[in-house]
Design a protein around this nucleic acid. Structure first.
Lengths: 157, 157
DNA sequence: GCTTGCCTTCGAGCGCACTCGAATCCGTAG
DNA sequence: CTACGGATTCGAGTGCGCTCGAAGGCAAGC
């Protein structure tokens, strides 16, 4: 099986360092990452943190995916909790979950623990989708590198 | 680095068998795979082979991505060459290359070998895009599996 | 007090990649 | 001869996920 070799190759080129300890990164979210002084973030700052636009954050709220608090001036305040959810949302979106499904999932979350079975189904489907995508992407990578080799270049650009 | 371990895990679950020898699969395209009797395929058959709809195949043609021949009745005939290109196109599309860039790339291909340098740039960008996506997908997978674990279920559905 | 700049809401608009429908034509089976 | 499934062209329509613009509010600096 040349597959692992392949994937290894793709990951240890370029900046795979920013990639170590993925799980750690995920759990660091609870702590200081999002709330350096415990102060919630405004919409622009929050947007920058998760890599979306303020417009999009407002759109997500409108769609019921997040419910940031408001300060005395009516401005949005993104707590660590909300920011963590935003990170989750972006991860799911980037891996191909539709807004439709994401809304359904979040609605279940808000309804409480009794909905866990249904949520689990959604996540199982999501896991399979991601795996399929990973396979497709790897095929695409092979094809791309094949082309690059055929152009006889110095493959490391 | 827990990364390789992770990816290994995701690949050897489910049907990773259909995945062995990716490069081989890619080169089998020249041979009997697409032209069992040497006969070109109609639009429906071709569509089924690459997993697209006949509508989409006609659309791709309209956009200049393929130029299948025609039989005496004016029906499209997809040769092995055209089918191979279709496979390439779908791989690029699935890995996030836009129609815009794909059209540009194919236009360069049709212009001949003098355009190889420019094509190479496109493929380099594509390779980087794919790598980025692979990292993002892996993060999404970790998140998804974390959720699944938190639902305490039997993770293998 | 006024300017500057980020915030608010609202609804409309956009870009991408298909996707469909209508009208018509081809070729085989009965 | 006729009916049928599947092909053709063309332009219009769809769904998704934002993305933008207008009209106005709040807060800090000069």
């Amino acid at each position: 099986m040349a597959t692992n070799e392949l994937i290894e190759r793709l990951l240890d080129t370029t900046d795979s360092d920013a990639f170590e300890g993925v799980v750690d990164a995920l759990h660091a979210l609870d702590d200081s990452t999002f709330e350096p002084g415990g102060s919630p973030k405004g919409v622009a700052e929050a947007a920058a943190l998760v890599g979306l636009s303020p417009h999009t954050l407002r759109y997500y709220e409108q769609e019921g995916l997040v419910r940031p608090g408001r300060n005395s001036a009516g401005y949005r305040e993104y707590s660590a909790f909300t920011l963590r959810r935003l990170v989750f949302l972006t991860r799911m979106r980037m891996s191909g979950m539709t807004m439709h499904d994401l809304k359904r999932y979040i609605a279940l979350v808000e309804r409480g623990t009794e909905t866990e079975a249904e949520r689990r189904e959604i996540m199982l489907a999501q896991r399979d989708r991601i795996r399929r995508q990973l396979r497709e992407l790897t095929l695409a990578l092979v094809t791309t590198e094949y082309k690059l080799r055929s152009y006889g270049g110095h493959p490391d650009g």
